[in-house]
Design a protein around this nucleic acid. Sequence first.
RNA 1: CGGGGCGUAGCGCAGACUGGUAGCGCACCUGGUUCGGGACCAGGGGGUCGGAGGUUCAAAUCCUCUCGCCCCGACCA
Length: 513
Amino acid sequence: METAIKPTRGEDYAEWYQQVVRAADLAENSVVRGCMVIKPWGYALWERFQAELDAMFKATGHKNAYFPLFIPKSFLEKEAEHVEGFAKECAVVTHHRLVAAEGGGLMPDPRAKLEEPLIVRPTSETIIGASFAQWVQSYRDLPLLINQWANVVRWELRTRLFLRTAEFLWQEGHTAHATKEEAEEETRKMLEVYATFAQDYMAMPVYKGPKTASERFPGAVDTYSIEAMMQDRKALQAGTSHFLGQNFAKASGIRFQSKNETEEYAWTTSWGVSTRLVGALVMSHADDDGLVVPPRLAPQHLVILPVLRGEETREAVMGYVNKLAAELREVRYHGRSIDVEIDQRDIRGGEKNWDWIKRGIPLRVEVGPRDVESDAVMVSRRDRSPKDKRSMPRAELVATICRELDEMQAGLFQRALAFRAANTRVIDDEAELYDFFTPKSVKNVGGDERPEIHGGFALVHFGGDPEVENELRDKLKVTVRNIPEGVPEAEGAGKCLFTGKPSPQRVILAKSY
RNA sequence: CGGGGCGUAGCGCAGACUGGUAGCGCACCUGGUUCGGGACCAGGGGGUCGGAGGUUCAAAUCCUCUCGCCCCGACCA
């Protein structure tokens, strides 16, 4: 069967991903190396992520604020591990003025050299810490619960649209607390928020839990993550929440006077998700015809495709379409009005239809003269075959649209869950583990040599030795994604598969993005 | 930074070995026929061939230098 996206997932997964992003008109590479241009449909999606997450942050007591793009070099140097972690991928501003260069063009003015270089933020712990230090005097000033929506820059060598770009959009929560327990609770709470968002809005099942020491955020005491399985069975870290202990409070001087008159350092946390979630959405639900957007995140729920032939019926059809759109917009779906697009572009109907399939809009509704006649419409759902059209009375569509969308949302989640279950294996034998992660075939339709899609998530007992992690990474390109919580198959103590040491529970091993 | 490759129309490419100032597919524009479905026919617009220098009567093509990008590796949310 002809597919809208070539190559298909099975033929060349990496290329398929690029083609879906392009076909859905989400983003494109910019002239600036490693940076992307997010196009209107892609940005509309990001705005939906923002709207829902922002509401969840506010509901848990956080306030938005904004801090500078630039971080003085000395700030970044304050936390030893932090410097180590980010130094290699920082953009640095050294001058504040340009002058004409000999032979044309511009050059930094040597007389305008900054006394202290400024770093374009790769993350904002240190600059926000500086403000927190000033804002906090007393235990009465705590907790401080702040979130920032911003762009950050990490000078990555290899980039892929949405998954890893040199500049990306994200939110970063930063909080300060009087006690360790409260900060730890905050860290857990926000991890929970991310997990809920991933599952309820993105229809993407995730495993949540702490990272091992070697995968921790630079400077953190504990890092927790949510990990999702993509359709090539690799793991994608979709969000992180860090318990920073007093490390950054000490580095930034966030001190307060306690109730019993002692001076103490605050306990801080940070947590973030980024435009990478858009990539996660693509790789969770898109198929060989393009993107599939879960209804609860869809910028628009439904597109009406008027069949306009001949002037004599045009007015009747458009009148009917506008009336239908108005009726649908009266319907509430999870706190929003149904968002309806009427596509009147002067292009062929088939092309228009496929355009919306590739963009992944949940419902497509055709309205032509025959439908007006019978007061019925032709409805297609993105989670079904492109050719699958059902005629239904107009009133029925209006009455059942929420149920239809919820059904689709739930179906996407169930499909992703089943996929993950089918590709997750409990493993207690080293040979089996190596076999699980070693691709068997290198043949490809086009004659290219390419490893088959294989493996998945392995649940194994692991004793916590960093050397074992290094070996797994070197030999199998596999890492411990996290130590999953609330996963029955992973619960129960055992012995490390590699060293025989005691292991309190199983960890997730997987290849990852 | 090591190994390989590539810069020719918006995108994808041919032309280069054997110099004679550009061509194909898609996209775009116009007209017509179609059209409850990713159409067809005809016509048309668009490129100083990454940049600079050289050889030559003549350079996309040969030579030198240079800039940029991609892939593999290293590195990495």
